[in-house]
Computed example of a mutant assay.
Amino acid sequence: MRSLLSGKYVRDLTEDDLLSIITPHLPQADGVIVPSGDDSAVIPASDGRYTVSTDMLVEGHHFRRDWSSGADVGWRAATQNLADAVAMGAAPRSIVVSMGLPGDLPASWVESFAIGIAEACGHVGCGVDGGDLVGSELLTISVTVMGDLQRREPRLRSAAHPGQALIHCGELGRGYAGLELLTRGYTRELGVIPPTQTGLIDDFLRPKPPLVQALDACRENRIGAMMDVSDGLIRDARRMAKASNVWIDIESNYLAQHIEDLIPVARRLGLSDPWEWAMKAVLTGGEDHGFLATLDRPAERAWGPHTLALPEGFSRIGQTREAHTGGFVTVDGKPVDYAGGWDHFGE
Rank of each mutant, 00 (worst) to 15 (best):
S53M: 04
R222S: 13
A256W: 05
H123E: 15
G285N: 02
R152P: 01
G70K: 03
G131D: 00
A120F: 10
C126E: 05
H62C: 11
W275T: 11
R65G: 02
Y9K: 13
K242E: 11
E251L: 10
L101M: 11
I117P: 01
D228H: 03
R268Q: 13
D343A: 04
Y338G: 00
D337Y: 11
E220P: 00
P195D: 07
E189Q: 15
A83W: 10
F204K: 05
H289F: 15
D216F: 10
D38E: 14
V192Y: 07
L181P: 00
Y50C: 05
D129L: 02
L18F: 04
L105Y: 06
P102Y: 06
V42C: 11
G286E: 01
A309W: 08
R297H: 07
H324V: 06
A107C: 02
P154E: 01
M279A: 12
L271I: 02
A309T: 11
E220S: 13
Y176P: 00
L295D: 07
R239F: 12
D12Y: 09
I263H: 04
V10T: 11
L269F: 04
D288Y: 12
S68F: 07
S53Y: 06
G103A: 15
D129A: 09
G100V: 06
G116W: 04
L292D: 02
V34P: 07
H168T: 01
T307G: 01
C169H: 10
Y50D: 01
Q164C: 03
P92E: 05
I115A: 12
H123T: 14
I22T: 01
D216C: 09
